[in-house]
């Protein structure tokens, strides 16, 4: 079935089953491998993408659910000013080690700060509670979110 949506600000059309996971469409059909698969069950957030500017787990999203919507992956988000601020904060606070969770963490950070530009540490932790990291122990990630909040992301 032909399904169109907007990916990283460009119109795309794919010819796939409506049941195909958004994650597989992005990685395998469209070749954008910045979005990662960790658990494949909605529990780790490595596969986070933005849909109409809200974070979704692309491993649980049948592609038809985003028909005609705006999808942004880390590749598209890299072109924004918010990305620079968040990525710099992750780099300076040591919020990324192996990097596997990082694309998801960065998009989740953007989503928190968009809703709540000055979160408390507790609020930041709650907002990132669906994103797992096996390396950092989280404190460095929370520090990065707080630093990005201080600098102020541009929306």
């Amino acid at each position: 079935m032909k399904i169109s949506f907007i990916l990283n600000k460009k119109n795309v059309e794919v010819d796939v089953s409506p049941s195909m996971r958004l994650l597989d469409v992005v990685r395998d059909v469209l070749g954008l491998t910045g979005t990662k698969e960790g658990c494949g069950e909605g529990e780790c957030g490595a596969c986070t993408v933005l849909v109409n500017d809200e974070p979704y787990n692309s491993c649980l999203t049948p592609i038809i659910n985003v028909a005609n919507k705006e999808v942004m992956t880390i590749e598209g988000f890299r072109e924004t000013k918010s990305y620079r601020i968040i990525a710099d904060a992750f780099a300076s606070q040591g919020g990324s080690q192996c990097g596997f969770c990082t694309p998801g963490m960065i998009l989740a950070t953007y989503a928190v700060l968009k809703k709540n530009p000055h979160p408390s540490e507790e609020e930041a932790r709650l907002a990132l509670s669906g994103n797992l990291c096996r390396c950092t122990g989280y404190q460095a990630i929370v520090d990065a979110v707080m630093l990005a909040a201080k600098k102020g992301i541009e929306l």
């Binding site: 089953s17 049941s19 049948p62 659910n65």
Partner: peptide, 18 residues
């Protein structure tokens, strides 16, 4: 199929497969 957060988990096979 609604949001898929239960059904997509229940019907999941493996990476790259429908």
């Amino acid at each position: 199929m609604n949001g898929g957060t239960d059904l997509m988990v229940q019907k999941h096979v493996s990476t790259g497969l429908l």
